[in-house]
Design a protein around this nucleic acid. Structure first.
Lengths: 229, 229
DNA sequence: TAGATTGTTAATCGATTAACAATC
DNA sequence: TAGATTGTTAATCGATTAACAATC
């Protein structure tokens, strides 16, 4: 039933572009705080760490929000991007697994200030319950369903050990969560239509290690010709 | 001087492949722990959450480590990937900024078990000094240079507030660090040859929010045809 | 009008995927 | 030898970039 066919004004924004919109938004917020009223694609691109051709191409998927010969109105573009991402409204979020990382996430001020509200902290360990972290009670994991329904939570954050993560994900999906941010070092299986993004600290370090090693190898190879004696 | 021309046995591995090698490595470690001796590309791909064509293509950049008709020897492939990434040796790492997130990172067991050793925790706040986190003394930020030289540190982790991050990065580069993992929500400027990877929690959530919003819009558009009354 | 800067086109580059010959 | 599975090729897809016409 119910085909996802018509899709109306579904400007199909490429994934790579979607991933950069929050970066542009942050750059615009910084510019606004500095009192900048207008900026060129070149200025904004520099602030966001990309080149201006890419920035203009990205923005072109949203619409025509600039003025040729002039640039972009900072506040206006900021609002348009925020609206496109969907952070003009507040998104309720639950965090499961209140260990070291869960604590850090609960206390992260960037969530609150960027359109996210932590409505619940859940942990399977009864020893954690009724502790208060960042002004929010830690509650038993079993209360997940009730909280998701009550607050219409669509986004869940998993900060549990790897062994627990799949179970948590299953329960989240069952409860109606459709988007998961996973910090546990494990591959999650989820049904179609559920989005998972993964943040993996040791994988990031391993990618860096690969490049360090390559640079070291290149340096060694180079020094043969350098004859640095 | 000293061209990086010759480059010898520099099998040029695509970035997208490099980013997946640690995922394969983790899957192989899990398989090994379960007592699996041999696996097909199909099995390993499933464990890693990719399709088997992509896995085989990725592995082909490293060499020919499988056996046609049979599959891959789990321990052998595990070693080859670890060697390619460079995590057969231990990498010393410094973490700067010991707030909530820095604490969580210092305590993260995944670093130690995957080839990384936290040799120092640094913080600008004198109130933190001589505190011990995860068995390591928190030291003044000024000791960065000395520690980097003493331990030949190539990898630095920034977990400071955004305003401090660029200064920390500059000092890291000056001290000789060539790879930075940045958790501060800011774009870092670094010289050529220095690698920066960025982990940004609120950006990840914003990307999820965009997709939640799209799904909601699609659902609404669909429900017009559904006539659910 | 002249100078500046956007939005878009077209070319290029890199990543993914399916298919299959090679080979155990 | 027959069945299984790799490693590689070639086609496809998506992302990046440079260049420039449109237009303020």
């Amino acid at each position: 039933m119910s085909a996802r066919t018509s899709n109306d004004h579904a400007r199909d924004i490429p994934e790579a572009t979607v991933a950069r919109l929050p970066v542009y938004l942050r750059a615009l917020i910084t510019l606004a705080e500095q009192g900048t009223m207008t900026c060129s694609s070149e200025e904004l691109a520099t602030a966001a760490g990309v080149n201006s051709a890419k920035l203009r191409k990205d923005l072109s998927y949203l619409g025509s929000y600039g003025t040729r010969g002039v640039g972009y109105d900072v506040e206006y573009l900021r609002y348009q991007i925020a609206r496109e991402i969907g952070v003009t409204q507040d998104w309720p979020v639950v965090i499961v697994g209140i260990g070291n990382l869960g604590h850090a996430l609960a206390n992260y001020s960037g969530f609150r200030s960027r359109g996210f509200r932590v409505v619940a902290l859940l942990d399977a360990d009864p020893g954690m319950h009724d502790e208060v972290v960042a002004g929010v009670d830690v509650r038993p994991f079993d209360e997940l369903e009730g909280i998701v329904v009550e607050h219409s939570v669509a986004i869940g954050v998993i900060a549990t050990p790897a062994v627990a993560a799949q179970d948590v994900a299953d329960r989240m999906v069952e409860a109606g969560i459709t988007s998961i941010l996973n910090f546990a070092p494990t591959v999650l299986g989820v049904p179609d239509g559920v989005d998972v993004r993964k943040v993996d600290l040791s994988i990031e370090l391993q990618i860096l290690a690969y490049h360090v090693q390559r640079k070291a190898a290149a340096g060694l190879a180079g020094s043969v010709e350098e004859d640095s004696a």
